[in-house]
C-alpha cells in the first residue's frame, strides 16, 4: 500500500501544478493520508525485513559473515537436504492435522451456539469462548506441559484411577503434544468465523428443506453445511497459516522429534549463524504457505459467489 501511495504521488509532482492541487483535494488523497501511518509502519516492519530475508537467501554464507556472492545453493540445500525436507513435511503434517482437528471440533461448538443458544445468551457464549486469550500464549503452552508431562495431570489421574501402570510417554515431547496444544490454542479462531457463517443462514431455508421432504440430517448436509463453507474455509486459513510457522509450541512441548520449520530456521540463524540458509528456509516455508492459502482462497471465492444475493 505504501508503494501505491508513492506511485500515485509521483506523476502528480511531475505533471502540472493544477493536477497536483486537484489530487491533494481529492478523496484518494485523504484516503492515502489516512492510511499512511499504517502503511509506513507496514513498510518498515514488514516489507523491509521481508526484502532483507529475500536478499539474504541468495547470498553465500561465510564463517560468521555473509558474502556478497549471489547463489542458489541455499535453496538447493533447503529443498534437497532430507533433514530439512522432513522438517518441512512434518510442519505441513502438524499444521494440517491441527487444522483438521480444530475445525472438526470447532464446528459443533459454533453450530451449538448459533442454533441452540437463545439469542440473548449468544454474546455471553462468545465471550466465554475467548477466555483462553486472557492468559498469555506462552503460559498456556507451559500449562499443557504440566498437563501432559511425565508426572502431569493426565498421567497421575490415569495412574490413580488404575487405568495405567506407568506414565504415558507418547503425549509429551513429540508431535502429538504439539497437535494437542496448538488445537487448543487456535480453537476460538476457528469457532468464530464458522459461527458467523452459520448466523448468516436464513432459518427459513432449513424449514424449506424439511418441508420439501428432507430429514434434519440431510438438511444439514444439503443446506447448512454448504452455506457455512465460507466460514469453514476462513477457519482453515486462520488456523493453518499461523500454525505452520509456530515456534513456541514445538520448542516447548515438541521435543526433538516434534521440531518444526521455524525451529530449524531459528537454529540456522541464532545457533549456526547461517543467515542465508535460514532465509532460504523461511522463504521456502512462506512460498508453501502461500500456495496452500491460494488454493483455499480460490475455494472460498467459489463459495462466496453463491452468497451474493
Amino acid at each position: 500500500m505504501g508503494a501505491t501511495g508513492a506511485n500515485r504521488g509521483q506523476p502528480a509532482i511531475m505533471d502540472a501544478k493544477t493536477r497536483w492541487g486537484r489530487f491533494r483535494r481529492s478523496e484518494a488523497a485523504s484516503g492515502l493520508l489516512l492510511i499512511s501511518p499504517t502503511a509506513l509502519y507496514a513498510l518498515l516492519m514488514l516489507a523491509v525485513p521481508l526484502a532483507a530475508i529475500l536478499l539474504y537467501s541468495v547470498l553465500t554464507d561465510g564463517y560468521l559473515t555473509v558474502e556478497w556472492t549471489p547463489t542458489l545453493a541455499n535453496y538447493a540445500e533447503a529443498w534437497g537436504d532430507p533433514l530439512y525436507r522432513q522438517v518441512m513435511l512434518r510442519s505441513l503434517f502438524v499444521s494440517a492435522t491441527v487444522t483438521l482437528v480444530t475445525v472438526l471440533l470447532a464446528y459443533p461448538v459454533a453450530y451449538y451456539v448459533s442454533f441452540h443458544v437463545s439469542p440473548s445468551r449468544k454474546s455471553l457464549w462468545l465471550f466465554l469462548i475467548t477466555i483462553p486469550f486472557w492468559t498469555s500464549y506462552l503460559i498456556r503452552v507451559f500449562l499443557w506441559k504440566v498437563i501432559l508431562g511425565f508426572n502431569g495431570v493426565v498421567n497421575s489421574s490415569l495412574m490413580t484411577l488404575g487405568i495405567i501402570d506407568e506414565p504415558l510417554t507418547f503425549i509429551l515431547y513429540n508431535v502429538n503434544a504439539v497437535v494437542i496444544t496448538l488445537a487448543h490454542a487456535y480453537a476460538p479462531f476457528a469457532i468464530l468465523p464458522i459461527f458467523v457463517a452459520l448466523e448468516k443462514i436464513d432459518r427459513s431455508l432449513l424449514e424449506a428443506s424439511q418441508d420439501l421432504g428432507e430429514s434434519r440430517l440431510l438438511t444439514f448436509w444439503r443446506v447448512t453445511l454448504p452455506l457455512s463453507m465460507p466460514g469453514v474455509v476462513a477457519a482453515v486459513l486462520i488456523v493453518f497459516i499461523p500454525t505452520i510457522g509456530d515456534y513456541v509450541t514445538p520448542q516447548l512441548v515438541g521435543g526433538p522429534e516434534g521440531r518444526m520449520i521455524s525451529n530449524a530456521i531459528q537454529l540456522q540463524y541464532l545457533r549456526l549463524d547461517n543467515y542465508p540458509l535460514g532465509s532460504a528456509l523461511a522463504v521456502s516455508a512462506m512460498a508453501i504457505v502461500t500456495a496452500v492459502s491460494l488454493v483455499f482462497l480460490f475455494l472460498n471465492r467459489r463459495f462466496l459467489r453463491v452468497r451474493q444475493q
Partner: peptide, 19 residues
C-alpha cells in the same frame, strides 16, 4: 414431522436455496 406431511409451503421470504 414436516418432511412426512402431504403439504408443501411457499415461504414469505421464498426461502430459495442461494447455493
Amino acid at each position: 414431522p414436516p418432511n412426512k406431511r402431504p403439504t408443501n409451503m411457499v415461504f414469505q421470504s421464498y426461502a430459495i436455496f442461494p447455493h
